[in-house]
Design a protein around this nucleic acid. Structure first.
Length: 465
RNA sequence: GCCGAGAUAACAUAGCGGCUAUGUGGGGGCCUGCAGAGCCUCAUACGGGAGUUCAAAUCUCCCUCUCGGCUCCA
């Protein structure tokens, strides 16, 4: 199967082919390191985590880079306010980011470049842009001249002339054109600064991403991702700068995720309507949060609300319950033919096909519900060990990509399992005597301890809750 | 104003010209001593209007409405 992606650059669904061989360079804009990550950041991280996992499953040799922006207004404001060095602030929030995303089952990227560690390369890139005539110095600052390039607006479909007509940006005297953007800024009092040929100051936001992505992934690479709000101007400017520097196509496929909304607004720091990952994880399992995020196609916005999260919890529990029952049934399943293997195999094919359609996790999840139903039906009849194993394999493929299941089997608990066997044995005798009051009491009291008993037609199952 | 994404049953989501959509919730049934879980089944859909086609939720055009972006931003 060929992977298809919807490329923001063309607006089209395109077959995905690496520039050469099976190497895939993937760059995603990470966070600004001045505060805890919120659910919007989680959506982005989980989205691209799943995309990366699917690419790896398809056999691509993926190099995944997520950057940290630590030279930016908020970070600088914060470091001044707290009176701590920028580095300390950066370290703190990089640590928090890894903690939060780790809990959400996001696999680590290969490289996490930090803007402030790349000052030499950034300055060199700005010098080169000046040399090539794409940038100019003005009062100690350096600006990119958007009239010098042909590719203004290729990503967001804008034309410079139209932008100028409807311009509502205040014109800065130092700029030749309102849409020119800053590559190097003068320092302000108290701000951290770096030496440069133009002034003591700091780089603009956009050039940081261009430099870091090309340093680790080469002058042309396959995938660049981020949230839709970054399309203009951030990613647009990255393209202009990078292609001006190299005369090559910067990125082949641009992928943009829909934003996390709260009611009618997008979730953001500036609107103060955000829910941090830490807060949400107080009330919901990380698997539930992932399921919630992946239950909608990544291009679409998601409305954040408690009802939706609760619903995600119930829906996920349905599949997890099937998996629990499957694991329990494997304990003492008889040997025999794997007559379920075909069903398990075609389920994987459906799942992979959904993922190949621009990472359609929603459709992939629908296929899991279908398979789950098949497994439940199968479990009601005569089972064989090899059939159950093939079903388990399918769940493992699901989890390799989505990471939303728990596989530990309480039946494997060396102390608890034999103990539960005894309790259940005795309770079965009580039930045989139709002493329902006592049987229910055992069940109720176990539940108070956090162990749930389920009487099915043929056996008794238990699990921790 | 410009650019982009949308409008699918009670709600949330898939659907990329023909094939009983998925979950939550609701009705009915089966299984169960009961509970839970599970299985079967039913109802409620494609924003409005034209067109193309043997065939449209899907393609084209028009209209209405929603959301996002337009140099803080995942």
């Amino acid at each position: 199967m060929t992977l298809k992606v919807q490329n923001t650059l063309t607006g089209q669904f395109e077959e995905f082919h690496p520039i050469q061989g099976n190497k895939v360079g993937m760059y995603v804009c990470g966070i600004n390191t001045y505060d805890d990550s919120h659910m919007g950041h989680a959506k982005s991280a989980v989205t691209f985590d799943v995309i990366r996992r699917h690419l790896v499953r398809k056999g691509y040799d993926v190099t995944y880079v997520i950057n940290f922006t630590d030279i930016e207004d908020h970070c600088i404001e914060r470091t001044i306010k707290l009176g701590i060095p920028l580095e300390e602030l950066t370290e703190k929030y990089i640590g928090e980011y890894h903690t939060d995303m780790g809990k959400l089952g996001v696999k680590k990227a290969d490289i996490y470049p930090v803007a402030s560690h790349h000052m030499t390369e950034i300055i060199a890139a700005i010098e080169k842009l000046i040399d090539k005539g794409f940038a100019y110095e003005s009062g100690g600052e350096v600006y990119f001249d958007v009239t010098k390039v042909e590719n203004f607006g290729v990503l967001s479909n804008r034309k410079l002339e139209e932008m100028q007509a409807g311009a509502r940006v205040a014109v800065d005297d130092r700029k030749k054109n309102p849409w020119d953007f800053v590559l190097w800024k003068n320092k302000k009092p108290e701000e951290p600064f770096w030496e440069s040929p133009w002034s003591e100051g700091r780089p603009g936001w956009h050039i940081e991403c261009s430099v870091m992505s090309m340093k680790y992934l080469g002058e042309s690479f396959e995938l660049h991702g981020g949230g839709t709000e970054l399309v203009f101007p951030h990613h647009e400017n990255e393209i202009m700068q990078s292609e001006a520097l190299t005369d090559k196509q910067f990125v082949k496929y641009w992928l943009h995720g829909g934003l996390m909304n709260v009611g009618d607004d997008k979730m953001s720091k500036s609107l103060c309507n955000f829910f941090t990952i830490k807060d949400v994880l107080k009330d919901y399992d990380p698997q539930v949060v992932r399921f919630f995020l992946l239950n909608t196609h990544y291009k679409k916005p998601i409305d954040f609300n408690q009802k939706a999260l609760a619903e995600a919890g119930q829906a996920l529990a349905r599949i997890q319950n099937t998996l629990d029952n499957l694991l329990a049934a494997m304990e003492n399943a008889p040997e025999g033919d794997g007559d379920f293997a075909e069903v398990a195999k075609s389920a994987i094919e459906k799942f992979d096909a959904a993922m190949d359609e621009d990472f359609n996790t929603r459709d992939a999840i629908a296929s899991i519900f279908d398979f789950s139903k098949e497994v439940n039906k199968y479990l009601e009849g005569q089972v064989t060990k090899s059939s159950l194993e093939s079903a388990l394999e399918t769940f493992k493929v699901y989890d390799e990509i989505l990471s939303i299941f728990q596989f530990e089997n309480d039946a494997g608990d060396h102390m608890l399992a034999p103990l539960m066997d005894i309790i259940i044995d005795i309770r079965q005798k009580v039930r045989a005597d139709k002493n329902w009051a006592l049987a229910d009491e055992i069940r109720d009291r176990l539940k108070e301890l956090g162990i749930e008993i389920q009487d099915t037609g043929v056996s008794v199952k238990w699990k921790r809750i």
